[in-house]
Design a binder for these strands. Structure first.
Lengths: 200, 200, 200, 200
DNA sequence: GATGAATGAGGGTTCATTCAT
DNA sequence: AATGAATGAACCCTCATTCAT
């Protein structure tokens, strides 16, 4: 039923290809930034030609949009899991911080789109992006509020605390270097420690 | 004396014009991002033509570079003053946070440029930019280290604390709205409170 | 075999187009000079648009470069043939002069480019151009030296004699008119006579 | 009478300035070629500003035109002198060759305009240029014809011989290097020897 | 006479996008 | 489903030219 018809088969094939392209795009963008990543390069990475991309995506913006969606979806998935698998709110928040840092550093550019979507997207696509971005942020809100409610956290302004938290994390990608002094793990721990001092 | 003043007059005129252009550039760039801001638009904003800009700036990169310099220089000036006029390190840091927020919010456009210089500048100009950026940051480092030394602050990783601090502040411009719930003053106070919890 | 021919087909097609463009470029350039020939005009001549040229050539310099190469290659081919098919060095030199005059007059535009490569090319491409130009000239050197060795010619400075010879021939295109008093054949004969007086 | 009035005085001043500019222009052009020589550079050489040039010359073409005139006038002057001061036609021709080589090498670019005036000048100015160029060439014609008439030279086609001669000389500037193997004097002698073999 | 400043036309180049095959 | 080829709009930059002062 689910995968029976021929149509679905070819649809599956297309979806596969789309994902491949998105991954390639994400890679190139992480190297060069979105504006400088050209359709040509993205295609070349997959040994395709420029024109072929337009079979799968309406235009460049659409492609970037879907890159963003994919990455954000994944990240949200991880947040959700963390949320349901940890016990204390502190533990959850620590895990979430770790997840965010991981994405901010490793998926730098595609994650970056969260930061300044209005420079990247036209009005049409801006809305769903912002929605997803809010969904992502809301997981942080949840823990913080839960923490406040059960007395684990003492801050008053949950929204602003979340802003502070995410802001400080986003910034990491501006300076973090893979071969630098600190490992990703150290980073995750230190930031967790510091940011929990804010919350408590 | 005579020659001097005449010279200064025309030099002043050119400097004025340069500043005008820089302000225009900064405005456009913040609306559209650096890459998408065109020389034409920047000129049009001032009712000039594209070509005229090249009378004042060698090329686009040079213009962006000087935008950077101007704003950063001003901000550094304010930090310096704060540093020398306050008593406790906590007081200094609070003031510095206030200054940074003010720039990030009110001079949003200009200050923004600090964020991603490496995508904007060629290697030649990247270096002096990073230097100035470091100079700016170093004022924060100084207070933090001084605070640690005299026991006011307890954090271990001064550099990372500074990163966290500046990152969280930079992010403010992503969401802050003049007519929003919080006044600038409230913002400055809350962020100071929260970030000092990190330091102590 | 199948793959080979298909490949060759499309390769051939692209080579054809490239040649078309080169011919167009060569025509425009000889009307206006290299600097004043614009990519737009070159394209317009073929009812293409500027941008399309960049599908075939990296940039203007590359296009000019290949113009050079193509014509020079052909001419070298003819010299080589002459060299191997004639008996006396005098006969060879006469034939070579005829070839050179033919190119200078009939393929005026293309051949012209040999004249001032150093104002046209950047250092990178200058070298291979000069090399090919030298290769062309070296065929003349060979006959002259051979002629000297076997006593047919009596001049001392073979290099300078070659310069004089080629210089005088190149100049022909400055004044020669198809419908003028002298036929091409007369021209070839008279110049041969005169220049051989130099050699003997 | 000649230089009495104030008007003439200032006219003289203007003429002086014009010559200065022309010399500067000639210098820059000899370094960069005419197309690449900018009004700015020419002015800078004289510590003037671009705009001032337009007080003295209608436009760039006019300036180039007058450069050309000046140099050609000088060269013609030298030819005239040679013509009247030498005894045998051979001696005259040798001297003329020396003069031409000197200009072709030392005043490379300004002399060069003789070579391809149609690329440099619009129809308006082309005519007087060609006229002067013919005047220049006619001095060579005269000696050659005189030489034929008195039996010194044996060639039949005086025009073509002159073309051959000037062509070979013009070409020198394509390859001659100041610090090369041959001094200017050697060059003048060798070319004279070779070209007189043609005439005789 | 000279200059500073501005202009505008044009050139080279890039690149997302289209479309016939 | 993919490609090769072409397009055209947009961008940066240069430079001869102008003109008020």
């Amino acid at each position: 039923m689910q995968g029976g018809s021929i149509l679905t088969l070819s649809e599956n094939k297309i979806r596969k290809k789309k994902e491949e392209i998105i991954l390639s795009a994400v890679k190139i963008m992480n190297e060069k930034g979105y504006q400088r990543a050209t359709m040509e390069e993205i295609a070349a990475e997959l040994q395709m030609t420029k024109g072929s991309l337009y079979y799968y995506f309406k235009n460049k913006e659409d492609l970037i949009f879907q890159c963003h969606e994919l990455v954000l979806e994944q990240a949200i998935g991880e947040l959700r899991e963390v949320f349901h698998n940890c016990i204390s709110n502190e533990a959850i928040l620590r895990q979430m911080i770790a997840v965010h840092i991981k994405y901010a550093v490793l998926e730098k550019e595609s994650f970056n789109m969260i930061i300044k979507p209005d420079e990247t997207f036209s009005t049409d696509q801006l809305h769903p992006i912002l929605k997803k971005r809010n969904e992502y942020a809301s997981w942080f809100d949840r823990v913080i509020i839960a923490g406040i409610d059960c007395g684990e956290f003492s801050i008053k302004e949950s929204k602003m605390a979340r802003m502070l938290l995410l802001g400080s994390l986003n910034w990491i990608q501006q300076w973090y270097k893979k071969d630098g002094e600190n490992s990703l793990l150290e980073l995750q721990n230190i930031y967790s420690d510091y940011l929990l001092k804010v919350m408590k």
